[in-house]
């Protein structure tokens, strides 16, 4: 598992990168009440705003961690946004991406580095 400074986690699964938000991010956001996902098949660039999530407090974006194509989105989330609070590292993944070069993942933090990052 890799982590971004935007508090996303990235997991490789069958040649795809699965993206979600960390437990820390879910706790900071509070109860999630709305999730808007991108269209499957969409080509995205690193730092594009691809997902909108709203908590009871405010709206925020999830950015594409890398250039690539969104190949699958988690259809369960729009109807059940609370899943993001209940299981952020598991069932509440947001999307799966196809990327050119898996070695691009190396630039991200590992778990120990992320733990240091969030203090």
């Amino acid at each position: 598992m890799k982590y971004t400074e935007e508090h996303e986690w990235l997991r490789v699964e069958d040649d795809l990168v699965v993206v979600g938000i960390t437990q820390h991010a879910a706790e900071q956001l509070g109860d999630i009440v709305f999730v808007e996902l991108p269209d499957e098949g969409k080509t995205v660039s690193k730092d594009d705003e691809v997902v909108v999530i709203e908590s009871v407090k405010a709206a925020s974006d999830i950015l594409a961690p890398l250039d690539g194509e969104i190949v699958e989105v988690n259809e369960a989330l729009p109807d059940n946004p609370g899943l993001v609070n209940d299981d952020p590292l598991g069932e509440a993944w947001f999307f799966k991406m196809k990327i050119e070069d898996m070695s691009a993942l190396d630039e991200f933090m590992d778990e120990a580095a992320y733990k240091t990052f969030i203090g």
Partner: peptide
Amino acid sequence: VQYALGVMK
């Protein structure tokens, strides 16, 4: 602004 339960609960 909130306690341990969180806003929704």
